[in-house]
Amino acid sequence: MPTIEDTAVATDFPGFTTIRTIRTLFYNGDSPEVPYFLRDAFLLPQRFDKSETFLIRLGAEQQARIMSELPKNLEGLHLHVKRYNDKNDETFYKELKIFIEEEKIRRKLILKRPGELFLFYKDKYIVVTEELSRIPLSASEFIGIPSLLRQFNEDQIETVVQLPKELVILAKYVNVGVGTVEKLFEQLKEKKNTEKG
């Protein structure tokens, strides 16, 4: 099963021109470069393990919802919300660097393989084939995740093709955590590996 890090691709892709840098004094002025295609990227809190609650609170204050809302210098970002400190700024900065690099790799993968449907989970992905896309999201196909399957049913999400590209957002469902989402991903991976042909 490929991970995003395993994907070797060329570097000449549209949208990769740097449009800004984000600075901080945490790492001696280290400044990750934000490419154009990420200018208005939504900073999905679930993509930031240690900063998820921090980002949710910032979003409630209309701060740090999308990349272009981030200040040029992240120090002091915590001042927009109560009960957070500069350690939260530092943790978010570390995770933001990882997010930017993962997004660059994902973008290259999608551009290199146009027309293919992907499901992403953290640093891994699955290419959704026609056979995989038709599998019903039911207890007969997926075990150990009954609450998630029931909620899919309530939302009329019936087959694999209807899943969101970013699987971590499924943790938004009631009583569904990252462990449940990981179980779904692992079962999808197994089904993909046992496809005919």
Rank of each mutant, 00 (worst) to 15 (best):
M1C: 06
P2W: 02
E5W: 05
A10M: 09
T11N: 11
D12V: 09
T17M: 03
T17A: 11
I19S: 10
R20I: 07
Y27T: 06
Y27Q: 11
G29D: 04
G29V: 01
D30G: 01
S31L: 05
S31M: 13
P35T: 07
F37L: 05
R39H: 15
R39A: 15
D40Q: 11
F42Q: 09
L43A: 11
L43D: 12
L44V: 04
F48P: 06
S51R: 06
F54K: 10
L55T: 09
L58A: 10
G59K: 02
G59Y: 02
G59N: 13
G59R: 08
A60R: 14
R65I: 09
M67K: 04
L70C: 04
L74Q: 12
G76L: 11
L77S: 10
R83S: 12
Y84R: 14
K87S: 13
N88I: 03
N88H: 15
E90C: 03
E90N: 05
T91M: 08
T91A: 10
F92W: 10
F92E: 05
Y93M: 13
K94S: 05
I98C: 02
F99M: 08
F99R: 07
E103L: 00
E103K: 13
R107D: 05
K108F: 04
K108G: 15
K108S: 14
L109V: 11
L109Q: 12
I110P: 00
L111K: 06
P114K: 15
E116R: 15
E116I: 09
F118C: 09
L119M: 09
F120K: 11
F120Y: 14
K124Y: 09
I126T: 06
S133C: 00
R134P: 00
I135R: 12
S138M: 08
G144N: 09
G144P: 07
L148G: 02
L148F: 03
Q151L: 01
F152Q: 00
E154T: 14
D155Y: 07
I157Q: 03
T159H: 12
V161Q: 08
V161E: 12
P164H: 09
K165S: 12
L170C: 01
L170D: 01
Y173D: 03
N175F: 04
V176T: 14
V178Y: 04
G179T: 12
T180G: 03
T180N: 07
V181N: 05
F185C: 14
K189A: 14
K192D: 07
G197P: 00
G197F: 06
